[in-house]
Design a protein around this nucleic acid. Structure first.
Length: 1098
RNA sequence: AGUCCCGUAGCUCAGCUGGUUAGAGCGCUACACUGAUAAUGUAGAGGUCAGCAGUUCAAGUCUGCUCGGGACUACCA
């Protein structure tokens, strides 16, 4: 017996199937039953379990899951090792805030040991929630043996990888500018800088400062001797009695005391302008980019240009010396206060001359180094000016301590410059500036010591390898990722933190000796060596996190070495997972080799510069290989208004609630079918409801239909001898053809990592073709009479379709698919659809001609129904015929083949073809695609000429195959293949057209047809009565009828038909019948009484 | 600020390598159907394909710019 159900309850199906999977170990079997030599390698990007899973995780994991399931269907063995990302700043910050401490307190108020213990506990806090959502959403991943990044083995593999990179000379220690939060006393990662809300619009005091050119104080006009150290004759060195300044704009006046250079664009045009200092009203000469004159001169409250020199290139300014803006400390490590060239200078903003303070800007640092100008760092790590900062010493550069009476030092600097006659412009400026997400205070860029991976050295190779990766969508690979690789910077590995993998580098105090550890065994050796040389008794700690590892002292060439205190960037942890998940190379070599590289990975686009990058970088540097061959990057899940979901806005969708309410499948199917996953998804629960109702509801109904009749007939398609192809009904062959076309399409889409069209194709097959056409057309075959070959053919066909659909949909809707599959399967069989193999489509059953014929049947039926509607002729009223113009024999054959379908669908007795040219009014249209290619510019004229063609001319074209056109005196032959000839009218008939199809309806209702119509009306009413009386569809009845004369007549004529349709054993007229009168068309009346027949024959 | 994605009916989305009536589903309105019935069919209303310019015989589709939404990257002074 097939199970029959009252209502579709997807959440209940989830639970039932989940239990079935677990009891029967289906996930494991779906892997181990596939051959080892047919692997499909998938890597799980490790989530961090210190936060709750969100609906976007359901999205990302659906993508991962469905392609893995699809490959399993294709016979691949898909191992899926889960993983957890356990280190890093987010976890540390969470712990800090929970313990109410700051970074400074670590090692003081709390030991590093206890602190790290707290991190370790926090990191898995929501593991249960994650495991729960994983189960409930049907994501198959091995969570029993996950890799965990804080485990000793994992960390050892990371060290090994780093050592490989070190041995290639790609690791160095450098001094660089990094985001730093003085308020929190900690450096920040770029990740943190990109937390929502980090960039805030702020209004800063900006200054255009005037840097006095050395030897430019008015005496320049007199000659170039004297103490002028600017030896080069300059174009600006023309006659002028006024002091000369270089002017530069800054939004951070507090960096001005640390200025050591001015940077110009070598190819930018500059000019010297004579003007008046707006604050002192002295006449001065200033140099700036010509393009920016209008920005600073001639406006309201702006000085005027009194005189202007010829332009000269920035390169001519290079080397020019100027006097330190605010005299004080000078750099010891370079030749400062010079004009230097820099590519990054533009004329978009400022003056075209860039104030350069190498300690407080990445560009500044870079260009400063290149030109050897040295640096000044007059601000300390608390955000305060140092003693060397003259009048500003000791003051905070921003209000880092929330001082009530904080006076903005930037304003004071501006005032100070004004008084000295060295301010050209002071103004407020609104721009976005990064803030520390914890303290909400502005970030400062500060020089810090760090370890780097010289990834820039392998960027060409990374780009080459990237081109071999199949990105979905391609634009992310070429654009976002490709561009990122083009401009690749070195990878800053260092994190001055506590909870992470320690850098395995030991150095002597002065840094001249260095040991880089690549394994625990190596560390063991080095420890023994150190013990021997230093007379110590150390051993390798069991836990190689801080603080234990920090206590290890090594030895080399007579020096004591201590560990560099930094940790490794967590992104290196996750990028190491292909190797570290197997503790490679210390174990599992063979397993690793067959699991590398990945065939497929998937994450959100936000991982482009995260995990996608670190996987790629490590693979390129260590193995000269890609880490993954195919990658899908999905977009964001937004709320239904298109806003980002956040707890703060309260618009976050709870994945548990969604799945509990609508089922995992409806949620998954909605997410994948609604739009391409790489577009952002506007998540709307109404959409999930619609999927549930429209797709799953329809499929469920279709199954219910099958089950209902299969049970009545006690039919079991399994083991039933397949009906020979030639004995199948046309509609069976049609739907099987469509099913196989669908299989081809779905297989191709999944193989190309393009699931959205696959879902839509399945949806449209189920809704439009299987349910609304095949089942509707075939209903009578299921309920009528004995088990014939035709009936068996119908059962077998529907069974085949449902079974195949369950396979095709199973990657996306694993629960319902399995439910459907198992309900269809014979009782007692515990097979799961997820253990089956998807057979290649049977191309032989794809019959394009048949699909075309059925398309005609559907379209012609629609036309007839619309004509009936227009003429107000209800479908139950049989009509004699329709006329269909047939301009070709092929068309006629095709329509004739499906005429019976049109007849039953529209209640018409015959389909008649019109070939007599006299009847048909033809129209002609150019085939633009074909003709346009050939004619090009003449197309317009040709289209006009063709539309002018007479019936006669069309006839000539049809009979001879060609027709000459005269296009403005030019003769052009057109052929019948280059035009479409259609009929749009049959004079004297009611017609409807759809493209090339035209149908006319015979609206004449003869008395005979009317009687038949009445009979059908009566049947319909009786059927309703049966149903209202709660009869089973198989119950037989006795009928009594009282009716007006025409109805009696109709009943007499169609007595057999009525009895057969209503399963009546007897039918009699009883004039005095006491029953509700039935509502019949016209003025006819009838009363009907029915009773269950005494005995049900069968 | 740069890079990338998106902008087609009230809503969610199709629209292949440019080809002449721009489609579907939902929603709305009317009618029909009724042995899958909390289903189904037919019809109707609803579109300057974000805007501007260009290429072309022909642009929703290709190019450039502008505007709007989003993401990523970014102290460009």
């Amino acid at each position: 017996m097939y199970k029959e159900f009252k209502n579709l309850d997807l959440p209940a199906i989830d639970k039932e199937i989940l239990a079935f999977w677990e009891e029967n170990d289906i996930f494991r079997r779906s892997i181990v039953e596939r051959p080892k030599d047919q692997p499909f390698v998938f890597y799980e990007g490790p989530p961090s379990a210190n936060g709750q899973p969100g609906i976007h995780h359901v999205m990302a994991r659906t993508i991962k899951d469905m392609f893995c399931r699809f490959q399993t269907l294709q016979g691949k063995r898909v191992e899926r090792k889960g993983g957890w990302d356990t280190h890093g700043l987010p976890i540390e910050l969470k712990v800090e805030s929970e313990l109410g401490i700051t970074k400074e307190d670590i090692g003081d108020k709390i030991s590093v040991d206890d602190y790290n213990k707290a991190c370790r506990e926090t990191v898995m806090r929501f593991k249960d929630r994650w495991d729960d959502i994983t189960r409930k959403m049907g994501y198959w991943v091995d969570l029993d043996n996950p890799y965990i990044t804080y485990e000793r083995e994992y960390m050892e593999s990371v060290w090994w990888l780093l050592k490989q990179i070190y041995d290639k000379g790609l690791i160095y220690k450098g001094y660089t500018i990094q985001p730093y939060s003085p308020a929190a006393g900690t450096g920040l990662s770029s990740h943190e800088l990109n937390m929502p809300g980090a960039y805030q619009d702020v209004t800063d005091t900006t200054v255009v400062a005037m840097f006095p050119v050395q030897g430019g104080k008015g005496e320049r006009g007199k000659g170039e001797k004297g103490e002028n150290s600017n030896a080069r004759p300059l174009p600006l060195n023309s006659l002028t009695p006024y002091p000369l300044y270089l002017i530069a704009w800054t939004t951070t006046p507090w960096t001005l005391p640390s200025n050591t250079a001015l940077t110009v664009g070598p190819n930018i045009d500059y000019v010297r302008v004579t003007t008046i200092n707006p604050y002192t009203e002295d006449k001065v000469d200033v140099i700036l980019a010509e393009a920016l004159i209008d920005k600073w001169f001639g406006g309201n409250n702006q000085p005027k240009v009194l005189e202007k020199s010829e332009t000269f290139k920035g390169s001519e300014l290079v080397g020019l010396r100027y006097e330190q803006l605010l005299p004080g400390a000078t750099p010891q490590d370079g030749d400062a206060f010079r004009v230097i060239p820099g590519d990054f200078v533009t004329t978009d903003a400022g003056t075209g001359i860039v104030h350069t303070a190498p300690s407080f800007g990445a560009d500044d640092m870079m260009v400063g180094k290149a030109n050897g100008i040295g640096s000044l760092t007059l601000v300390d790590k608390t955000g305060r000016f140092t003693e060397d900062a003259g009048p500003f010493a000791g003051r905070y550069v921003k209000n880092y301590k929330d001082e009530e009476d904080y006076v903005d030092v930037n304003i004071d600097i501006a005032v100070h410059l004004k008084k000295r006659g060295q301010a050209f412009n002071v103004a407020k400026y609104n721009h976005s500036y990064p803030h520390c997400w914890r303290t909400d205070k502005p970030v400062l860029y500060y020089p810090l010591d760090s370890w780097f991976i010289k990834s820039s050295a392998v960027k060409e190779r990374m780009q080459e390898l990237n081109r071999t990766i199949n990105w979905q969508p391609a634009s992310t690979g070429e654009g976002r990722f490709g561009k990122w690789l083009e401009n690749l910077q070195d990878w800053n590995l260092s994190r001055s933190r506590y909870w992470g993998i320690p850098l395995p580098i030991w150095r002597s105090e002065e840094g001249e000796e260095e040991v880089f550890i690549g394994s625990l065994a190596e560390l063991e050796e080095q420890v023994s060596l150190a013990n021997e040389k230093l007379g110590l008794d150390q051993s390798v700690p069991e836990d190689i996190h801080r603080p234990y590892i920090d206590e290890v002292v090594l030895w080399k060439n007579g020096k004591e070495l201590r560990r560099e205190l930094d940790l490794i960037d967590v992104w290196f942890d996750s990028g190491s997972m292909p190797y570290a998940q197997f503790h490679y190379p210390f174990e599992n070599k063979e397993l690793f080799e067959r699991s590398y590289p990945a065939d497929f990975i998937a994450e959100g686009v936000d991982q482009t510069r995260g995990w996608f990058y670190t996987l790629h970088a490590i693979a390129t540097m260590v193995f000269d290989s890609v880490a993954y061959k195919n990658v899908v990057s999905n977009g964001l899940v937004l709320d239904k208004e298109g806003k980002k979901m956040s707890k703060r806005l309260g618009n976050a969708v709870d994945p548990f609630l969604t799945i509990d309410t609508y089922g995992a499948d409806a949620t998954r199917w909605y997410m994948i079918s609604n739009s391409d996953p790489w577009d952002n998804l506007k998540f709307d629960l109404d959409g999930v409801k619609e999927v549930q109702r429209r797709f799953f509801g329809t499929l469920y109904n279709t199954y219910g239909f099958f089950a209902l009749y299969a049970n009545i007939d006690d039919y079991n398609p399994v083991g039933d001898e397949p009906v020979a192809v030639e004995d199948l009904a046309e509609i069976d062959r049609w739907v099987l053809s469509r099913l196989n076309s669908l299989t081809v399409a779905v297989t191709r889409h999944f193989a190309e990592y393009d699931a959205t069209p696959a879902c839509r194709a399945i949806e449209s097959f189920v809704n439009d073709e299987l349910s609304n056409w095949y089942v509707r057309q075939s209903r009578r075959r299921f309920w009528r009479g004995e088990m014939t070959t035709d009936k068996r053919a119908a059962y077998q066909t529907l069974f085949t379709c449902l079974t195949r659909v369950s396979q095709l949909m199973s990657p996306v809707a694993p629960f319902f698919a399995d439910w459907l599959y198992r309900n269809l399967a014979p009782a007692g069989d515990i097979e799961s659809v997820h253990l089956t193999y998807l057979a290649a489509a049977d191309e032989a059953t794809i019959d394009e001609d048949l699909e075309q014929r059925m398309a005609y049947a559907q379209r012609i039926s629609s036309l007839v129904l619309s004509l009936r509607k227009r003429e107000k002729l209800r479908v139950r009223q049989p009509l004699q015929k329709i006329l269909v113009p047939a301009l070709s024999d092929e068309f006629r054959r095709r329509v004739a083949d499906v005429a019976h379908i049109i007849q039953s669908e529209t209640n018409i007795k015959e389909v008649e073809f019109l070939t007599d040219d006299g009847f048909l009014k033809k129209t002609i249209k150019p085939n633009f695609k074909v003709l346009g290619k050939r004619l090009g510019k003449q197309m317009k004229a040709a289209a006009a000429a063709i539309s002018q063609m007479t019936e006669e001319a069309i006839g000539q074209l049809e009979s001879q195959g060609t027709y000459p056109l005269d296009l403005n005196g030019e003769a052009v032959e057109i052929t019948s293949a280059e035009v479409d000839i259609l009929t749009e009218d049959i004079p004297g008939w009611k017609v409807a057209t759809d493209g090339e199809l035209t149908v006319a309806l015979d609206v004449n209702v003869t008395p005979e047809l009317e009687r038949e119509g009445l009979a059908r009306e009566l049947v319909s009413r009786i059927q309703n009565l049966r149903k209202d009386s709660g009869l089973d569809v198989t119950d037989r009845i006795d009928l009594q009828i009282a009716a007006s004369a025409p109805v009696r007549e109709a009943v007499s004529t169609h007595r057999d038909y009525i009895m057969e349709e209503t399963l009546a054993d007897s039918l009699s007229f009883e004039d005095g019948l006491d029953a509700e009168p039935l509502d019949l068309p016209g003025d006819e009346t009838a009363k009907v009484a029915l009773a269950v027949a005494a005995q049900t024959p069968n």
